[in-house]
Design a protein around this nucleic acid. Sequence first.
DNA 1: TGTACATCAGTGAACGCGCGTTCACTGATGTAC
DNA 2: TGTACATCAGTGAACGCGCGTTCACTGATGTAC
Lengths: 191, 191
Amino acid sequence: MEAARRVLEAEGPSALSLRAVAREAGVSPAAPYHHFKDKAELLDAVAHEGWEMLQLAMIEAKARTDRSQHLTALGIAYVCFARDYPALYRVMYDAARDKEALPMDVEDANPENGNAYCMVRDTMIEHGADPSAETHLELATVAAWCGAHGLAEMAGFKQFQHLKDELGGERAFLDAVFRHMGLFPTQAHDC
Amino acid sequence: MEAARRVLEAEGPSALSLRAVAREAGVSPAAPYHHFKDKAELLDAVAHEGWEMLQLAMIEAKARTDRSQHLTALGIAYVCFARDYPALYRVMYDAARDKEALPMDVEDANPENGNAYCMVRDTMIEHGADPSAETHLELATVAAWCGAHGLAEMAGFKQFQHLKDELGGERAFLDAVFRHMGLFPTQAHDC
DNA sequence: TGTACATCAGTGAACGCGCGTTCACTGATGTAC
DNA sequence: TGTACATCAGTGAACGCGCGTTCACTGATGTAC
């Protein structure tokens, strides 16, 4: 798994072959078959681990942030995760495609916390969303998730550099975009 | 190019090989080399055509919609394009990755219209954004684009079916999510 | 304490496959004089 | 009108490559009696 993650971030998602992972792990091409049924199972495992990493990052971001800024903190943590592990991020969504479960719907390793999607929803409630208006609450959660996902993919493009410079850095840029989505309270955060 | 688009939507982006395209076109594997330098050039051409298609869809959406609903109409058109040509949509962004130009920054076939990104920005102005507050305007445009892109990728997941049902269809669902992004005026649209 | 067996993570060689790309060549079409 | 040449889109065979997967196998470790 470690080798897989190394290959992934070093060479990109298209280079993530069973053979490459075995090579990186210093092992014969047949060895992985003692641990995974086939390539798809390895990919799923890598993706799953990725979701757990993301969730952990979100939990930490929430913990070290002022209560009023929780939602933005989650958004920033999300985008920063995608920035730090771009290839893993792609594999996570690729593996989720065609699956029945929501990708962010990973069962949690730490049982005291819900999954990533629920974290966002709960934080919406913290911020004053009405928990009894279920549809409204879900839509707001979906909208926030979409916004973060969209920004995560766009933030990588080079063209926004001048906006980042103008605003005084990437963090400020992310915060400003979130603010313009009208979903998140405003203020800069650690990343 | 037609063969490429057929392969793409029939078999997905990973099946888009030079050989597959040649096969689909009923031609030898070497034939495409008379039209494209290599595989990358073919991919770029396909992606470029995709951006032009998207832009056309957005122009049409704007044309047949009430002025007050232009921005939402663009968003809906964008998401519907991604739904109708999911593989092409992926190739478009994949080709743009690592490029210097903004992906939505396609030079226009109809010179009376700007590019897709400018369409969104101009529509923001139509809706009352202050054109002299440049940074603000750009941020709003980026935020809108991110929101649409995020929704375009999420809308494909099966889990939102119950929300769609509850709201009375996909169009209503998309409209509702856009509304929750706080960027778009509200009301349902043709797709 | 020793023997027999099961489990486990590995080897290395081989399979068939589809891929991108190159090569020398062909036949049809257009153009110059 | 006829001849010579250039251009163009194609052929088909071959190249080397990395891939996923299978196979019979080995050696170390653990366990039962």
